[in-house]
Design a binder for these strands. Structure first.
Length: 466
RNA sequence: GGACAGGUGGCCGAGUGGUUGAAGGCGCACGCCUGGAAAGUGUGUAACGGUGAAAGCCGUUCGAGGGUUCGAAUCCCUCCCUGUCCGCCA
């Protein structure tokens, strides 16, 4: 969420930054002007309304004093005056609510402004390589199998039965592959907590809509989410007047007043970023406690609404997958350094697993809604003969903090404004498993276990068909 | 799911229609006291918004949203959350 004051005070600067996102290249100016128009109308209403409220408050106090002095005539005169103000005040309050909602609704769907050093570009082709962060040598091989061929041949990865039970984009892992997923998660958590000071968290994976608004998935991206409703999801809303009505009439009125609402039920988290970041929602944190660093190993659920036909084979794009997430809450002046540190933490995992990868800075056309700057880590998959995203580390600046209403105060107790939030995968566990299968596959169909994971796999060195 | 009881400032906690943004306490900050500290003592200590060059002035906020009233932390309605008991349940 953008700071309306910032748009008001520097409209052109806002438009310039927003128009760096290709989707807003043409419309940024019009967006800003629509918002500013509503904002101006709101402030006009406030000036008028507050004058009336001030007089009402003053007169109300005088009424209390007059009544205390038994001066009923004065009290009656004042009450008549306030009575006349009432209509205007109620109208003003309604206008205020409407205009505040208008401004908020317009702001809520606008993406974050790219950082100055986020490269300009239309799509992923314009992402900028970071050679200083590249690691390892991609192994080209004509004989390399894809992960699902390896997993299915091992008899430990079953898409057909998953389709029977849950449909497309689900998988059963069994035996050593199921254990390997757990081992990868445990290895990642241990690394982040022990080497990087993250606090391990086991968060809720069903959340209310307010949390998804806070991190920016709602209201704009609800089609990407799964929703969990109790029963048929009907919710009783509003007041039903049962006076002098038959049972049938009351039942009908209740049914009419019961509708699915956007507030009803829960949503399945698309990433642990949501519960980890919203942990501090509506709080004023102490600067001394920052940065906060959280990590969690959770399932993630995504509808993949816009991905029909993409990555249909294998485990690359699932409705449900495991991920270890990293979230940092920092002061504004720390967030750039924290972004580099978080990316280091994510990369360490791949380095310890000896998996070749590269890192790119996303261009303005490829960045997510809430990010001001993003690094993607792409791991080499010899079976696909390609680099594939395995982590995305973003600095969201104060964008999520404004939506969540999370601020911090300094040592003197003075509120300093919104915190900065960052999130990154550390890493996608399913895709890490894919990368291990493809990079550690052996000619006989078995898969070597990376050294770093052997302690988590009972000291074993290889996964074979059982 | 049912029945009660609650949700007040950084924390605890008073407050059931009229100068209550809110007593009191804790915590915190600064001062006095002290050789220094503790104790004691004094003062201060919410957020957000509008307006203004600023000082300031004004408004809103006592879980959230509506309503009643000249006036709501206080009365009414809806929702959310917490606690206790019952039911069900991993």
């Amino acid at each position: 969420m953008h700071d309306i004051k910032a748009i008001r005070e520097d409209r052109d600067g806002f438009v310039k930054a927003l128009s760096r996102r290709p989707a807003y290249a043409a419309s940024a100016g019009a967006e800003a002007d629509r918002i500013l128009e509503k904002d101006k109308a709101l402030r006009d209403v406030l000036v008028r309304l507050q004058t009336q409220q001030a007089r009402r408050n003053e007169a109300s106090k005088l009424i209390g004093q007059a009544k205390a002095k038994k001066d009923e005539a004065l009290a009656a005169a004042l009450m008549a005056e306030v009575s006349e103000l009432k209509e205007g005040i109620q109208k003003g309050e309604q206008d205020q609510r409407d205009l505040e909602k208008d401004v908020r609704d317009l702001l809520a769907v606008l993406p974050n402004l790219p950082a100055d050093d986020a490269p300009q570009g239309a799509d992923e082709a314009a992402n900028v390589a970071m050679p200083e962060r590249a690691f390892g040598t991609p192994v080209q091989s004509n004989s390399a199998k894809q992960h699902f061929e390896i997993g299915e041949a091992l008899g430990q990865m079953d898409f057909e039965r998953a389709a029977k039970v849950s449909g497309a984009r689900f998988v059963y892992l069994k035996g050593d592959l199921a254990k390997l997923e757990r081992a990868i998660g445990a290895f990642m958590l241990d690394t982040h907590t022990e080497q990087f000071g993250y606090t391990e968290v086991s968060p809720p994976v069903l959340v209310k809509s307010g949390a998804l608004f806070g991190t920016g998935q709602l209201p704009k991206f609800k089609d990407d989410l799964f929703r969990a409703l109790a029963g048929d999801g009907a919710v009783h809303v509003g007041f039903v007047d049962t006076h002098n009505k038959s049972h049938e009439e009351v039942a009908k009125l209740i049914a009419e007043a019961s509708v699915p609402s956007d507030e009803a039920g829960h949503w399945l988290v698309p990433t642990a970023e949501v519960p980890l970041t919203n942990y501090v929602a509506d709080e004023i944190l102490s600067e001394a406690d920052l940065p906060l660093r959280f990590t969690a190993f959770t399932p993630c659920f995504r509808a993949e609404a816009g991905s029909a036909g993409r990555d249909t084979r294998g485990m690359i794009r699932m409705h449900q997958f495991s991920k270890v997430e990293l979230v940092s809450i920092t002061t504004p002046d720390q967030s750039d350094a924290e972004h580099e540190r978080m990316t280091d933490a994510a990369q360490i995992i791949l380095k310890k697993l000896d998996l070749a990868h590269r890192v790119v800075t996303l261009c303005t056309g490829d960045m997510g809604f809430g990010a001001r700057k993003t690094y993607d880590i792409e791991v080499w998959l010899p079976g696909q003969n390609a680099f594939r995203e395995i982590s995305s580390c973003s600095n969201c600046g104060d964008f999520q903090a404004r939506r969540m209403n999370t601020r911090f105060r300094n040592a003197e107790g003075k509120v300093q404004g919104p915190v900065h939030t960052l999130n990154g995968s550390g890493l996608a566990v399913g895709r890490t498993l894919v990368a291990i299968l493809e990079n550690y596959q052996q000619a006989d169909g078995s898969v070597a276990i990376p050294d770093a994971l052997q302690p988590y796999m009972g000291g074993r060195k290889v996964i074979s068909k059982t």
